[in-house]
Write a protein that binds this DNA or RNA. Structure first.
Lengths: 209, 209
DNA sequence: GAAAAACGGGGACCATCCCCCCGTTTTTTG
DNA sequence: CAAAAAACGGGGGGATGGTCCCCGTTTTTC
């Protein structure tokens, strides 16, 4: 048979690859899918050629970033659901955890910057969607979640509230994110304290164009 | 005496100037303070030279954008307070109005991109801060606002929730903004449904570096 | 309808980015 | 521990896009 397709990366290569993915996720969240490759290299402290050795082009890099974020979010959803008996507490724990995982990086899922039908990614995405839907259904069924919100509402607001602000300032915003998430979560509790305008946002509102 | 320092602009010049300010506000919100001058010109449908005729440099343009946003926000706060007898309804109305005014453009107030001590701006800023503080105090005194939030919490979350997402996709987010603001407002109602982590954010947390 | 004011698009100059090349350094292997 | 293999870094060409100015043309004003 043929040689293993991945003959195992050298130790430093593996380390660099992961640090690149981390930096790419940050830049993706900060600047959107048009981030600069050289900037990532500078941030990691690595030559820019290293980027191209690991990832053929922008799409491939973004693909791996999104893949890693989506699976981590999926993990968080599943763990929250498994380990937290109270349905709304599980949801709440997930929301705070997802903030730490930079959910904002999911935005490029929306436009054409990612191969939406890549099987690996499709699997992870489904796992994530099911996990989050499950958290939400459980909270709704337990009567703790207001009935007029959908999963897209949660995901959009979560993405927005956790995104860093543009420009060099605004550095101390980070320490308040979890407060605002918590306030938002309080607004999600039943009974609903107001009637919401418009219609509820679904996952496809969050995902599609 | 000397001639009037502003001999009154020609009609088309006045029109262009205002359209430039509108486009600049949009780009400021979308891309942060490093937006491209040419892009503004293209969006307005005007030659780029027109920009430089009206504004000497980036700082001056940003200054005028921020000034106009701040005074409009101040207006909104004062009108909400004057016309809405119920304190929390006044706050709520202000929040939704501020979203339409692109509060996100206030971020550059934070870093060095604006002359923070320009008297005109200082006046408008004070008027805005007093107006919003008044809305908040009234809501707190009426017992409708949870007591553990400060004005900075409101302003930060408001800025975040109303910012457009990066990248060309995500176009349909706009229609859900008011839903998420409403959920957040519901979370602000007394009695508090949870204990918030960290400390409350003040105006200076929102304003200073 | 003439003077004054404002406009628009092109262009020179500069920064930055992408992507590749190749001499050097680090890791692995026997 | 030395030689082979793998990965690295930084420089550079070419292209893109940005800023800012210049000047012939159009629009407004009186």
């Amino acid at each position: 048979m043929s040689a293993p397709p991945q003959p195992r990366l050298r130790a430093d290569a593996q380390r660099n690859r992961e640090r690149i993915l981390v930096a790419a996720r940050e830049l993706l969240v900060e600047e959107g899918p048009e981030f600069s490759f050289d900037k990532i290299a500078r941030r990691v402290g690595v030559g820019n050629a290293t980027l191209y050795r690991h990832f053929a082009d922008r799409r491939e890099l973004i693909h791996h970033v999104v893949l890693s974020v989506v699976s981590r979010i999926a993990d968080r959803a599943e763990r929250a659901r498994a380990e937290e008996p109270d349905a709304f507490r599980a949801l709440s724990r997930f929301v705070h955890a997802a903030a730490d995982e930079q959910v904002g990086a999911l935005c490029p899922l929306l436009d054409g910057d990612v191969d939406r039908h890549h099987p690996e990614l499709e699997d992870a995405r489904l796992r994530m969607e099911r996990g989050i839907e499950a958290l939400l259904s459980a909270a709704r069924n337990s009567g703790q979640l207001r009935p007029d919100v959908e999963v897209g509402d949660l995901m959009m607001a979560l993405s927005q509230l956790t995104r860093p602000l543009p420009g060099p300032g605004c550095t101390n915003f980070g320490q308040f994110i979890h407060r605002h998430l918590q306030i938002f979560l309080d607004g999600l509790l039943a009974p609903a304290r107001s009637q919401l305008p418009g219609r509820a946002a679904t996952f496809s509102d969050f995902r599609d164009n």
